[in-house]
């Protein structure tokens, strides 16, 4: 992990709301975090947590009825929140790249892979035609696609799911972006293919010295991939910190609950420790802590005051009035 004076990405109090027919969905409601150059961060949470919306907000990909209401996204000192679309277009692909869950949504089915890769380089680099082709071939080879020259002429549907995701990763890395946002990149893939893709992503990103935000619901993937973890619940950060520390000694009962919900083959229990209840309706969040209804340690203050993120240990902070001590169960 590299440390610099100023982080590559500094997000402060980001609020992205969706004004729908049935009320305001506060999908992201006051999210802050820092990401250093070369750092890999996992953004985790369950559906409705707002993790994907954070990723889309960073790239300015929020469409109406959604809107970045307030907050700041400083990328290398430049404000991206509500920046003009023209500037965002320059940044997308060149500085910040995105990898989606379904590779079919990011690849155009009617163009060859070669053409789509070439377009990316034409838009974002000064390379001439020959040099661009050279770079495309190198990139495909480095993501493990054999006969790269030939495969440039193939269409996306001629690749299998795992291969398509490799192509998407190659395109994302082409212009040597400094930040990559990967939204559930392996969720649609099988375990053995997932293992291949994760290995590949880790290697390529380290090699380029890029930073990565890995948006996922899968704590096991996070444990294997990232340096730092940020846990979201109902649009807010409930806990953040170095990944080992958070997974071994979570301070927030929600993080604890998530970890306990995963069956662990090494310690089989007759019953899983489950989080009771369901995620509350995000259009009508209760006052105070959003997790309190599902929390066994909730007290009177939890329904009055919304807890803010407070540092607990080295680099670890949690938004809870009664943070867990190391080893304690929720």
């Amino acid at each position: 992990m590299t440390t610099e004076m100023q982080p590559l990405l500094r997000v402060r109090e980001l609020r992205t709301w969706f004004h729908t027919f049935s009320g305001i969905v506060k999908a992201v409601n006051g999210v802050s975090f820092d990401l250093a150059a070369g750092e890999v961060m996992g953004l985790v949470g369950e559906s409705g947590g707002g993790k994907s919306v954070v990723g889309y907000s960073l790239l300015g990909l929020i469409d109406p009825p959604g809107k970045i209401e307030s907050g700041s996204i400083l990328f290398d000192g430049e404000e991206l929140a509500n920046a003009p679309e023209r500037r965002l277009r320059e940044i997308r692909g060149r500085e910040i790249a995105m990898i989606f869950q379904d590779p079919m949504t990011s690849l155009n089915p009617v163009h060859t892979v070669g053409r789509q890769m070439d377009e990316m380089l034409r838009l974002h680099t000064e390379l001439d035609k020959k040099a661009r082709r050279q770079r495309c071939v190198e990139m495909l080879e480095s993501v493990g696609i054999a006969r790269a020259e030939e495969r440039l002429e193939s269409y996306p549907h001629q690749f299998s799911g795992g291969m398509r995701q490799r192509v998407v990763i190659a395109i994302a890395l082409l212009a040597k972006p400094r930040l990559i946002i990967a939204d559930e990149p392996t969720t649609a893939l099988d375990v053995t293919i997932q293992a291949q893709i994760l290995r590949l992503m880790r290697r390529e990103i380290r090699q380029q010295g890029a930073s990565l935000i890995l948006v996922t619901h899968d704590l096991a993937v996070v444990a294997e991939m990232v340096d730092k973890i940020t846990v979201l619940y109902c649009g807010r950060v409930v806990e953040t910190g170095p990944v080992r520390q958070v997974l071994e000694a979570p301070a927030h009962p929600y993080t604890r609950g998530l970890i306990d919900s995963i069956p662990d083959p090494a310690h089989r229990l007759p019953r899983l420790r489950q989080i009771p209840g369901t995620v509350p309706d995000i259009r009508a969040l209760p006052k105070g802590c959003a997790f309190r209804a599902r929390c066994s340690g909730a007290a009177a203050i939890c329904s009055e005051v919304e807890p803010s993120l407070v540092a607990r240990a080295e680099g670890q902070s949690a938004a809870c009035h009664f943070p867990l001590v190391s080893g304690e169960t929720a």
Binding site: T192, A195, Q196, D218, A220, V222, A223, E224, D264, P265
Partner: peptide, 25 residues
């Protein structure tokens, strides 16, 4: 064996994968 070793785990103390599968089904 490949399936068992490919499955990611939140348990950090794990040895290197025994079999890494190449290619696809």
């Amino acid at each position: 064996r490949a399936l068992l070793s490919a499955a990611p785990s939140i348990n950090p103390t794990r040895s290197r994968p025994e079999i890494e599968l190449q290619g696809e089904v």
